[in-house]
């Protein structure tokens, strides 16, 4: 763990218990007088975010992303482990930590609808100890930065969802915090609004040196926005790498072989080092896609064996391509592998 990290989660763990009375049990579908359900929302997670970095938390619904954001912002107390923000323990110095973070929770719940953007900034600024001239100047600067100057005196209820979301980011930035937590900032937004928010987040991180944590299940957003990506699956951290490294991990292992016809796939999957083989039929023609093991020597032997097998079967080999992965493929493979093995990769 880096000592220069702005945010650190050290072996953080959170289990939620829910109590149900006179309800049908989710698994047995039988009505019970009482049953208790346990959800391991965050399972001994460790990661950090450095200043000037955007970390994306990627995961399915219910994977534990929002719980992690809430743990960092002090809204949820971990069962064990530590959450450190700018060197301060969230549990013991929560009120001080709150001066160092800006949080945008999911949806547009942050803003007060009967007030204008300027009044919202004034209200939340006062709540967070920003006063007088500094508050006025910062409010104007933020509205200008986020592109809402022309709407500064329009009631929030009359703004579009994207504008409300941008205002929520301004509110989170009113104390000029070094850490910004964005929970699904682009969900439900149109392409332009989503683009505008992404641009502003990048600009803010690069120009102002903020440390940003973004949770999302939009792979494009994560791929475009984040310097590093942490994939969360069933409360566990399944992967945490630089975006390009993450894409590289699986790119090495998948090959597309363009053929004159699709052969029988069973002999191919029996070759040692071949994890899977599937038929391909796209714009580039027909063929097969083979996924090989990560070990380079084994992978090389397996690839030679696949080609030999195809030659024996009388199939014409037209081309071999190294498959280009996108984040969605990587995400699906990590989470599927994880589901099958029950282990974090």
């Amino acid at each position: 763990m880096s000592s220069a990290a702005a945010v650190e989660l050290c072996d953080a763990d959170k289990i939620f218990h829910t109590h149900h009375f006179f309800q049908k049990h989710e698994e047995t579908q039988k009505r019970r007088i009482y049953y208790k359900k346990t959800v391991h929302a965050v399972n001994h997670v460790t990661f950090d975010i450095r200043p000037g970095e955007i970390l994306g938390l990627l995961g399915r619904n219910g994977a534990g992303k929002t719980t992690m954001v809430k743990m960092i912002s002090g809204l949820v107390k971990p069962n064990s482990g530590k959450v450190i923000v700018d060197g301060l323990d969230v549990e013991t110095k929560r009120l001080k930590v709150l001066r160092k973070i800006g949080v945008v929770l999911e949806g547009t719940r942050t803003v007060i609808w009967p007030l204008t953007p300027m009044e919202n900034l004034s209200y939340f600024g006062n709540l967070r100890d920003v006063k007088g001239k500094i508050l006025k100047e910062r409010s104007k600067e933020l509205l200008d930065f986020i592109g809402l100057t022309d709407k500064m005196n329009v009631e929030v209820r009359k703004l579009s969802r994207g504008q409300k979301q941008r205002l929520a980011i301004c509110i989170a930035l009113i104390t000029d915090p070094p850490v910004l937590l964005l929970d699904e900032p682009t969900t439900g937004l149109d392409v332009q609004s989503s683009r505008a928010i992404k641009d502003k987040v990048i600009e803010m991180t690069r120009q102002r040196g903020k440390c940003v944590l973004v949770t999302t299940h939009d792979m494009n957003t994560a791929q475009e926005l984040c310097d590093r990506i942490a994939i969360v699956h069933e409360g566990k951290l399944a992967a945490c790498k630089r975006t390009e490294d993450l894409l590289e991990v699986f790119s090495d292992q998948t090959y597309h072989l363009r053929l004159d016809r699709v052969p029988d796939l069973a002999p191919l999957t029996a070759i040692p080092g071949v994890l899977s083989a599937a038929a391909l039929n796209d714009d580039e023609g027909i063929g097969i896609s083979v996924q090989l093991v990560a070990d380079e020597a084994q992978r090389s032997s397996a690839l030679y064996a696949v080609v030999a097998s195809l030659e024996r079967a009388g199939v014409v080999l037209r081309a071999i391509n190294h498959a280009q992965q996108n984040l969605e493929d990587v995400f699906l493979r990590i989470t599927n592998t994880d589901t099958k093995s029950g282990k974090s990769s």
Binding site: R99, R109, T110, L127
Partner: peptide, 13 residues
Amino acid sequence: SGELEQVYMSPHG
């Protein structure tokens, strides 16, 4: 409405 979370995150408690 989510206002409680916002209020809770104000550094005054």
